[in-house]
């Protein structure tokens, strides 16, 4: 896995990386907090925030653990379906709905993680892809997902009985709070001893084993954390989109998650956020061009892999010799 480091992660610098990251985090939070007052379409930004959290969760695995999951849509879709079902059929309150959906993703990530970490590298990617396709076919046939129609018209309700999520601005700040919570959990994880061991496994797994680390347990824990947070993003997305459909479990969604992270910068803290907004914006502007969106996504994939492996944030960090 050494090449991922060489080509995508900026070299460690002697400048104070934590301070740089804190400044960037503060800037990001301020920008995101004033968005509702700028007249930007809030739906777009909320959608972007959900995908940003999803990409950050995915990046925890690939960027810090060297594990490429090509099936992260399964967590997004599973949590989305469960949350939607809980809100619409069980009449649960929003906070409980999010909790149930995230818990479902947690359970799923434990099961799939135990299976997928049995192989490394390229096989890991193929196994996660196959597992997500397995779930896709299950959801296609299961009655509660309503097949091709999906679950529609989901009530947004009042969070904790007082916060009215039908108000767009209120919903925006709830989604923003959820995003920041997930982002900080990931940030904390990658800067913890756990994160350091994860990076050691990415660099040289046999050596990490020889140092006495039970690498399988670390990889499983990373997978569970990543899957659960991806599910959390999926649960939040239900309130924004007010539906849950097969699109969110499809392999093309898993591919989009990979693309967002690749464009922003694998193994960078802020890259997935930037990448998610870039890709969502692109889809928004090119929505009328049909399948050209797919073609352009493919071209971006090829271009990124061949010439732009550090991604947007990775390149900026490299230029300024800072870790972002």
């Amino acid at each position: 896995m050494s090449t991922i480091t060489q080509n995508s992660v900026p070299a460690p610098t002697t400048r104070r990386p934590v301070r740089d990251e804190m400044i960037a985090l503060a800037l990001m939070t301020i920008v995101l907090a004033i968005v509702p007052f700028t007249g930007v379409y809030p739906f777009f930004v909320m959608q972007g925030l959900c995908f940003a959290l999803l990409a950050c969760a995915f990046n925890l695995l690939i960027g810090y653990g060297g594990l490429l999951s090509f099936g992260h849509a399964m967590f997004l879709g599973t949590a989305g379906y469960v949350t939607a079902h809980a809100l619409k059929v069980w009449d649960l309150s929003p906070e409980l709905g999010i909790l149930v959906g995230t818990a479902a993703a947690l359970g799923l990530s434990v099961i799939t993680g135990l299976i997928a970490i049995r192989r490394q590298g390229i096989y890991f990617a193929m196994i996660t892809l196959a597992l997500s396709q397995l779930l896709y076919f299950i959801y296609l046939q299961a009655p509660f997902t309503h097949g091709e129609d999906g679950i529609q018209g989901i009530p947004q309700g009042k969070m904790f009985g007082v916060i009215d999520l039908q108000n767009a601005t209120t919903l925006y700040f709830v989604v923003l709070a959820g995003f920041l919570l997930g982002f900080l959990i990931i940030y904390r994880a990658i800067n913890s001893p756990f994160g350091e061991v994860l990076k050691a496994i990415r660099e040289n797994e046999p050596r990490a084993i020889s140092l006495g680390y039970k690498t399988d347990q670390y990889k499983l824990l990373a997978f569970i954390l990543s899957g659960t947070l991806a599910g959390f993003a999926g649960a939040l997305k239900v309130f924004v989109a007010q539906n849950a459909s097969l699109t969110d479990v499809h392999w093309s969604m898993s591919g989009e998650i990979v693309l967002m992270t690749l464009v922003g910068g694998l193994g960078t803290v802020f890259g997935p956020v930037v990448g998610a907004f870039v890709i969502i914006a692109m889809q928004q502007y090119l929505a009328g061009f049909g399948q050209w969106v797919t073609v352009i996504q493919g071209v971006i994939f090829v271009a990124c892999v061949l010439t732009f492996r550090r991604g947007i944030v990775g390149e900026i960090g490299h230029y300024f010799k800072r870790s972002l």
Partner: peptide
């Protein structure tokens, strides 16, 4: 890394 081959050919497939 092997993974870049997978990503590149995925792009070509798209």
């Amino acid at each position: 890394d092997h993974l870049y081959g997978l990503l590149l050919t995925f792009g070509v497939a798209l």
